[in-house]
C-alpha cells in the first residue's frame, strides 16, 4: 500500500509538514517495498479549495493512507468517501520517523 506523508521537502529525511492542502510536498512511501516517490504539491500556494484538490491528487496517485498534522473538513470528506485512512503525526520529526511509527501502529487514527 502507498502511504502519503505531507512533507516540507522532497525526501524521506525532510520534516513532516503539519498542513495537508498547503504542504510543499507529498511523499508516497510504499509499505511493501520501502521505496518512495515525492510529488511537489501544485496547490501549496493556491487561493482556496486546496484541501479537496490535494485530496483528489493523492487519490489519483492511489494513496491508501495519509499521515499529516491537520486536515480540513472538505479534504477529510473526500478521503473518507474514498476510504483513505488518515493518521495524525505532530511530533516534529521526519517523514521517515512518521513512517516508522505508522508501521509500528503507534499513530493516532483520525476519527
Amino acid at each position: 500500500m502507498k502511504v502519503c506523508i505531507t512533507a516540507q521537502g522532497a525526501t524521506p529525511e525532510s520534516k513532516v509538514e503539519e498542513r495537508f492542502g498547503r504542504a510543499p510536498y507529498f511523499i508516497l512511501m510504499d509499505s511493501d517495498t520501502g521505496s518512495f516517490e515525492a510529488i511537489a504539491n501544485p496547490y501549496a500556494d493556491g487561493a482556496g479549495g486546496v484541501g479537496p484538490k490535494a485530496a483528489q491528487l493523492i487519490l489519483d496517485r492511489n494513496a491508501g493512507a495519509l499521515i499529516s498534522g491537520l486536515l480540513g473538513g472538505n479534504a477529510k470528506a473526500v478521503l473518507d468517501a474514498a476510504g483513505v485512512a488518515q493518521y495524525t503525526y505532530r511530533s516534529g520529526g521526519t517523514v521517515k520517523d512518521a513512517f516508522a511509527e505508522f508501521r509500528n501502529n503507534t499513530l493516532q487514527k483520525v476519527g
Binding site: 496547490y43 493556491g46 487561493a47 482556496g48 479549495g49 486546496v50 484541501g51 479537496p52 484538490k53 485530496a55 483528489q56 487519490l59 472538505n74 473526500v78 468517501a81 474514498a82
Partner: peptide
C-alpha cells in the same frame, strides 16, 4: 476545471 476545488470526482 474547477479552480476552487468545489468538485471532487471519485
Amino acid at each position: 476545471f474547477c479552480q476552487y476545488g468545489a468538485l471532487t470526482v471519485l
